[in-house]
């Protein structure tokens, strides 16, 4: 199926002005997993800042702490030490309900395995985070339609995930993110389960979103797609060993 690249959509200027320039700021963040007597240091004193509108790729070998970093950025996990500031607010010690609320409002996830709910149609999957915001149905419907149009999945709105190809599922997952207009989009190996054609398509989609003003942090170890990012952070043994700009 032919898939064209959507046109970038920029966030309203006034909205952008009201937000701090730094979307994410990690200071000396460490994460230690302790299982019985064994301690595993997944992250060690990580300092990282992501500014609004950046497209950052986090790269490194397997087990270097990429996923742990993304989980902490996405408020799915808490650091053992250090500070995490999201949109100017310290979120290190937030309670579970507050973390859930922030995940819902400010963070969008794209997973390697899409993580759509099999019992729900594409439309319902995209609608799901909006229902957790207690948004009015009319507003939700409008947002869902817009998001599906942006990823060109309107024609599959009533389909179930099992009826879609991998690329279409990932597009639906991106639409689910777009629907809530998050402050940052976290993508964990978004192309990992896709063939190269669909992977390219998804990367073009992310690139377009970035051009439209979206802030993206993507974990990948595939060198083909790192170049879509404008900044590359290399991790090794839980430490940031390189943080460089990428001309593309």
């Amino acid at each position: 199926m032919k898939q064209s690249t959507p046109q970038p959509t920029r966030a309203p200027q006034s909205d952008l002005q009201s937000r701090p320039a730094q979307v994410i700021r990690l200071e000396k963040v460490s994460k230690v997993f302790a299982v019985e007597d064994v301690e595993t240091r997944a992250l060690v004193d990580v300092d990282l800042t992501i500014n609004r509108g950046e497209f950052v790729a986090v790269s490194g070998p397997s087990g270097c702490g990429k996923t742990t970093l993304l989980s902490i950025l996405g408020l799915l996990d808490s650091p053992t030490a250090g500070n995490y500031t999201l949109d100017g607010d310290v979120v290190t010690t937030l309670s579970q309900p507050e973390r859930a609320r922030l995940r819902n409002k400010k963070i969008g996830f794209i997973f390697q395995n899409f993580n759509l709910i099999g019992d729900l149609t594409v439309e319902q999957n995209v609608d799901l985070p909006l229902t957790y915001q207690s948004m009015r149905k009319a507003d939700r419907t409008r947002r869902v339609q817009e998001a599906l149009e942006r990823v060109e999945m309107s024609h599959r709105a009533r389909h179930y995930p099992s009826q879609l190809s991998g690329g279409q599922q990932q597009r639906a997952a991106v639409a689910r993110v777009l629907a809530v207009s998050p402050h940052i989009l976290l993508a964990d190996e978004p192309t990992g389960n896709l063939d190269s054609k669909n992977a390219e398509s998804i990367m073009r989609l992310l690139s377009t979103l970035h051009q439209g003003g979206a802030t993206i942090c993507m974990v990948t170890h595939d060198p083909r797609y790192i170049n879509y990012a404008r900044r590359i952070v290399d991790l090794l043994d839980g430490r940031v060993v390189d943080d460089r700009s990428n001309a593309g």
Partner: peptide, 14 residues
């Protein structure tokens, strides 16, 4: 499924 719901912002109460 529950993990996905929580990841996209569902609170525990929800």
């Amino acid at each position: 499924e529950i993990a996905i719901r929580m990841a996209i912002g569902a609170s525990r109460w929800r």
